[in-house]
Amino acid sequence: MESTPLVRAHGVRKSYGRTEVLRGVDMTVEQGQVVCLLGPSGAGKSTFLRCINHLETVDAGQIWVDSKPVGFRLRGGKLHELREREAAAQRRAIGMVFQRFNLFPHRTAVQNVAEGPVHVQGVNRRQAHEQALALLDRVGLADKAGSYPRQLSGGQQQRVAIARALAMRPKLMLFDEPTSALDPELVGEVLEVMVDLAREGMTMIVVTHEVGFAREVADHVVFMVDGAVVETGPPSQVLDDPQQPRTRQFLAKVL
């Protein structure tokens, strides 16, 4: 039996006003795969990622995650648009990590992690707290449970943000340049957590400029320019033997 891919996007288009930011993007991610999305600034990488968990609506094309159409319900052979509440429920299966962390500043690290389980999933407080502590331990921050975000370094904040996303037990994790806002010496601690996550079999789509990370863990590298996929394949091919001139130019700059 052939397994269906966890993520299937085809013909995804998106415009802001007159500018077309995504011009028909296709992508398939199998269960347990790690896909790295590379490309110059303004290529539409963030926009595409945000379409996958319905932070943005698409103008054309479709995205299916876990055999469900993102932002829609399939009924009677037609796709019916979801209400915001229903879209919220659909997002629970998809974790997202942002460039600027976006931790809740008025809550401690452990409260940030337990927020979703308690106030979205209705897990009991004590149990959610225990799980949150375990997750913080997993990202190496057991001793920072009681700290507020502004008391933490960028690398620590991003690891809390990863723990917060994992607390929802997502089937898919999206990372939007998770290390781009970090001081160089803090990049490693975040990448380490992500490598572990990939090894444990998490399905991940990672927008990144960290070519080393892509080479180490990616099953697929997708190179995007001007809202379209230019080149795709295993890292050994796209990163070490790129066929397209745009890919070569870009890699020459970031390497």
């Binding site: 968990n53 932070l55 915001e84 509440r85 919220a88 429920a89 659909q90 997002r91 629970r92 998809i94 974790g95 997202m96 942002f98 600027r100 976006n102 931790l103 809740f104 927020e115 979703g116 106030h119 979205v120 943000a161 917060r164 996303a165 607390a167 929802m168």
Partner: peptide
């Protein structure tokens, strides 16, 4: 960014 973070963990409005 706070709204996006809340949406991303599946919070209702």
């Amino acid at each position: 960014g706070q709204l996006e973070a809340a949406k991303a963990i599946g919070m209702t409005p």
